[in-house]
Every structure is written in C-alpha cells, then in structure tokens.
C-alpha cells in the first residue's frame, strides 16, 4: 500500500471523531480505497468509513490488506503532524507496521512514524442498500447544537419527520424541549440549507449520548445527512471530498 493524502488533517479529524466509539479496528485496503467498519462496544452503533482511492494522489494497493490499528496509537501519531502536512501511508505485504510520513508543503521537513499493527478478528457486517423514508440534509453545526442542547434535558430525542418539517424533541426530569426545522434554501451559503426529502412520515427515538458522539465529526463537513425509516437504524452521514464518507448507524430505542 502507498497512499498519499494532501491533508493529514482529514485522517486526524476522522480518528478524533470515531475514537471514543471504537478502539481497535481494521483499515481494509484494496484498490478502491481504505475502508473501516466497526461496532461500538455496546453493539448499538456502527461506524463505517470509506476513503476512496480518488481521495488520495497517488493511490496504489497491489494486494488486499487489513491494517489492524489501535486508534489511540494512531491519534498519538497523527497529532505529530502539522495541520497543513501531507500524509503518505505505506504498508508492505503481510505487514507488522504501518508507516506514516508527514511532509510539510512549504518546508523541507519530513517526519516518519511506524505504528505496530495488531491482529484484529473483527466481525464484518453487511450493510444493506436502503431506500429511507426520510432524507434530511442540514448544517452539521446545527445538528450538533440541537443534540447538545437537548442532552441537557434528556437522555433521548424523538425525531419526527413530516411534510411540515423535522422535529427534534425530548422530555426530561426538569422539563421538555423541541427544535423544528423546515426546508430552507440559502443561495449565498448553501452549507446552511435544510433539505427534507420525505416519502412517508417517520418517528423514531434515539439515545442522545451516541448522537452527540457522532457530532464530533462535524468539522469534517459543513452538512450532515440524516436518513430515517421506521424500525431501521438511523444513518448519520458526513460526506467527504471525492465521494468518500464517514457514516454512523444507530439503532433506535424501542418501547419497553
């Protein structure tokens, strides 16, 4: 494997975003790119990352390899990069280590690190193609604020999507709260758009603890996509350049 990423910061942000959900995971490398899939310890949330080969320049992967990496170790090494550094990931056949080289774009500094790999026997889950009943795109900062605000009142949030809009509401010991968003187009700042594409009304309840955790990815993308269908895990997607993505799935809370 040899994969050069213009922005070391991208991988750093991805790792920062998922590190509290998953600890040890396989980075599956093949000629289409680098993918990661892992469930959190409680087995109610799933992280799925895809960095397509187009996100790298150049990208070369001659044989499929799984790089088992401890994310705390990877985070430590990625913190050694400067924010504008270029990152090249390298691994041999049947590797013991993954090699990370940081290059400064405007100086001649080159730093190099190896991270020891681990054997991770990870269950691989099939993620079905799903036509969701509601697809909502909204500013990622807005979603983060809603989740954080409602978490001050309750452990869970009800997300209801109708043709009127999307309503986030909660009920807790001190009282209740709700935020409703309607479709909104901002020509000057499209990252502020709210788009709601609905085929049938949806109402589901989720644990806010997980949603707040997913929102750590907000720095990766100005917009977040929420996809919901009744009795199906919620998909929270942060789109990255070149069709790469970071996705989180969360099983809804179901009545007692």
């Amino acid at each position: 494997l040899e994969a050069r990423l213009e922005q070391a910061n991208l991988l750093k942000k991805v790792v920062d975003a998922i590190k509290d959900l998953v600890q040890d995971c396989n980075f599956d490398c093949n000629d289409s790119g680098i993918a990661l899939q892992a469930m959190d310890n409680s087995h109610v949330a799933l992280v799925s990352m895809m960095l397509k080969s187009e996100s790298f320049s150049p990208f070369r992967c001659d044989r499929n390899i799984a790089l088992g990496i401890n994310l705390t170790s990877l985070q430590k090494v990625l913190r050694c990069a400067n924010s504008e550094d270029i990152l090249t990931l390298k691994a041999e056949d049947a590797p013991d280590v993954v090699n990370l080289v940081f290059e400064s774009a405007d100086s001649d500094r080159l730093s190099e690190y190896d991270i020891k790999l681990m054997d991770i026997d990870q269950e691989h889950l099939g993620i079905p193609e799903t036509e969701y009943a509601a697809n909502i795109s909204m500013p990622s900062a807005e979603f983060q604020k809603i989740c954080r605000d409602l978490m001050a009142l309750s452990e869970s949030v009800a997300i209801e999507c109708t043709k009127e809009g999307v309503k986030f509401s909660c009920n807790g010991d001190i009282g209740s709260g709700s935020v409703t968003l309607r479709s909104h187009t901002n020509v000057d700042k499209p990252e502020n758009n709210v788009e709601i594409d609905l085929t049938e009304p949806v109402a589901l309840t989720f644990s806010l603890k997980y949603l707040v955790n997913f929102c750590k990815a907000s720095g990766l993308s100005g917009q977040v996509k929420l996809c919901l269908s009744n009795e199906v895990p919620l998909l929270v997607e942060y789109g990255l350049a070149s069709n790469s993505y970071l996705r989180f799935y969360l099983a809804p809370k179901i009545g007692d």
Binding site: E123, H124, P233, I254
Partner: peptide
C-alpha cells in the same frame, strides 16, 4: 437489549 438485536438483524454478519 432490543437495540442490539435490531442492529444485528439489520446488519447481518457477512
């Protein structure tokens, strides 16, 4: 929990 069961049902091991 039901949540765990649901995630397992929806994302079967492949």
């Amino acid at each position: 929990t039901l949540q765990q069961i649901l995630l397992g049902l929806y994302f079967p091991s492949s």
